[in-house]
């Protein structure tokens, strides 16, 4: 693979062709804020917080670093007044959409946003439409139980036809990746309630400790992906114990 020279904040590096600018910058220890980026997913460019200033020969422009492939020699600056101004505006708009998303406050403060100038929405919860849950569900889990609906200011993440999410397997990935805590779930004994998607999933119990630990639907999806390899119905805690025990016996046998 051809290496391409590029300069980020004055540091000259050689990178593989088509590396994403954000990965290169982060590898150099340069801090770039993001809300819609996840290393497991492809570039998306929704939150606009990762903008950087790009210079190619005599042209300079702002670009989102998460979907900027490095194909030729570029000079990238991540801390110019233009970049700071642009990030601040993006954050202000995000805060106006989800004014009560407390997990965003530290980042907002860091970018210099305390109170957005714009009229704040209060009818859509904390969703900032980063699309992480939608993309995870579709691209990684392969279930696609949720997606966007509508357009413009009416855009929301929802279940098909706004009904109960019957495709949802209760894997909780959407809850894990949500940057604002908008997606909610509740484990209640033998049921997992995906509150935001209105789905109730029956849990399977660990065969050793009898604690409910995985929704039956998720267990089935994983089993199907393993194609013939048997998935033991053991919770992570018991599995760890079992592995350690097996290891111990193996060592004892070898020593004696």
């Amino acid at each position: 693979m051809a290496k391409i020279k590029t300069i980020i904040d004055g540091i000259e590096v050689e990178v593989e062709r088509d590396s994403w600018a954000i990965d290169v910058a982060r590898e150099l220890g340069i801090d770039i804020p993001t809300l819609c980026y996840h290393p497991a997913l492809g570039p998306y460019g929704a939150c606009r917080l990762c903008v950087v200033e790009v210079t190619k020969s005599k042209w300079t422009w702002l670009a989102t670093a998460c979907d900027l492939p490095i194909r030729e020699e570029l000079s990238i600056k991540t801390n110019t007044p233009e970049v700071i101004r642009s990030r601040k505006m993006a954050m202000e708009l995000i805060m106006a959409r989800a004014p009560r998303a407390e997990s965003l406050f530290p980042l907002a403060e860091k970018l210099g946003v305390t109170k957005p100038r714009f009229k704040c929405r209060d009818d859509i919860g904390n969703c900032i439409l980063c699309g992480l849950c939608v993309r995870m569900c579709d691209q990684i889990i392969g279930v696609s139980a949720i997606n966007f609906a509508n357009r413009g200011h009416k855009r929301i993440v929802t279940t098909p036809l706004h009904k109960k999410a019957d495709k949802c397997i209760g894997c909780n990935v959407c809850v894990e990746v949500c940057p604002t805590g908008h997606v909610k779930t509740l484990d209640d004994g033998s049921f997992r309630h995906m509150q935001t998607w209105d789905a109730d999933l029956e849990m399977l119990h660990c065969l050793i400790c009898d604690k409910p630990y995985i929704p039956a639907k998720q267990f089935k999806v994983i089993s199907d992906k393993l194609e013939g390899i048997e998935l033991k119905r053991i919770c992570p805690v018991c599995r760890r114990k079992e592995t350690v025990d097996n290891l111990r016996y193996a060592v004892v046998e070898k020593v004696s």
Binding site: D138, S144, N147, R151, P160
Partner: peptide, 21 residues
């Protein structure tokens, strides 16, 4: 919409997303 999703072998959530867009 449900039939379209089934016949085209795509998730209903995507059909709904396009139909409401």
């Amino acid at each position: 919409l449900e039939l379209v999703a089934e016949k085209l072998n795509i998730p209903l959530s995507r059909v709904h997303s396009v139909a409401t867009f």
